[in-house]
Design a protein around this nucleic acid. Structure first.
Lengths: 190, 190
DNA sequence: AACGTAATGTAGCGAGTGCTACAAGAGCTT
DNA sequence: AAGCTCTTGTAGCACTCGCTACATTACGTT
């Protein structure tokens, strides 16, 4: 018995991390109860038992994922502020493009799409995550910045555009735009 | 017989516009053969007959939609150039936020999500549409602009970020960012 | 008119969907 | 020990999914 099996209690709280892991890897739209249950070591029967129905499950799952994202941002916060906007932007861009962030980014666009289509839990989660990210960025702004609030919002907008263009194969276009804006350093690699 | 029924020939070419209309309204991910067929006045049987399988159908459909988008941009091109970057940006932003554009934008985020997940036809379509939009923007740049190429790419990035933040409920954040960037006019409404 | 190919209708298959009915086990209280 | 509630397993229902086998019609060519 090398595996303790972790049989006893099962609740939303114990299930959500396992479900989230599956969803981050395989996506949210195509997720159906039986594969989800298998990933969490349960049955579809129990998922319905704990969450009531699938819509509630998805909503709770998105809320949980949003919380995980928020916590991840807290972890990634450097104790030292950036000294320039360029450095600040480079930091958050590197964060969003990091390889360990990629599965999450794939899920993120699905959340945006669901948000646009009005699927119940999506917009709330997306809104929360963007709000959290804005706070993160504000805390990373240079102390002597003349307009930290506006600057952070400006950089958020530019960042999201950059990430989007990157995912559809136009990373070069975004980069050249950033160069023209002065926010990217010509010396940096792609 | 007020309806001529349009029974005779049915081919990819005659089906694609009808399929596209359905997809633009109801989305691409959840689209299944039978509803698609019904929207096009056929049967699932015939869709498979004409396209081979669903993956090919989706690919052809995305390619077609990309073409429609391209044509729509050509139509929307004003004969007069903008005189300032602000005006240029305002034009394309208004274009993307126009009410008749909204169903398409909803579909767009689905395309981005599919592109991120690597679903066969998605990335090609997204890439083509962004390329086309960049050309459009370049043609709208002020004639005396010091860096039309870089400026257009910069505005593209900012535009896409703005649209994305808007769909997830953070239009205000994007607007305040644009104000800080100098690309938005404080006098304009939301 | 006969033939051959393209186009279409009908029926269905096997798999998967969300969800439910029913019953049995587990653990706690009295 | 009896009862009680919480949790779980087994089957299954009604439905949709992409796709196919088979048969029929429509139509141009010879």
């Amino acid at each position: 018995m090398s595996e303790p099996q972790a049989k006893p209690k099962m609740s939303k709280e114990t299930l959500l991390p396992l479900l989230a892991a599956h969803v981050i890897e395989h996506g949210l739209g195509g997720a159906s109860l039986r594969p989800l249950a298998k990933a969490a070591g349960t049955s579809d029967r129990m998922l319905i038992y704990h969450f009531g129905d699938k819509e509630t499950l998805v909503r709770d799952l998105l809320e949980y994922i949003s919380g995980v994202y928020s916590a991840a941002l807290d972890m990634a916060i450097g104790s030292d502020r950036a000294t320039t906007r360029q450095e600040c932007f480079a930091r958050i861009l590197a964060l969003g493009r990091g390889p360990q962030m990629q599965p999450f980014m794939t899920l993120w666009w699905e959340i945006v799409a669901g948000s646009a289509r009005g699927i119940p839990g999506y917009k709330d989660a997306a809104e929360a995550m963007m709000a959290k990210q804005l706070i993160w960025l504000e805390n990373q702004m240079p102390e002597d910045d003349p307009d930290p609030a506006g600057g952070a919002r400006y950089m958020m907008t530019l960042l999201e555009g950059t990430l989007m263009l990157g995912t559809v194969g136009h990373a070069r276009m975004a980069r050249e735009g950033l160069l023209a804006s002065g926010l990217a350093d010509p010396a940096e690699g792609d």
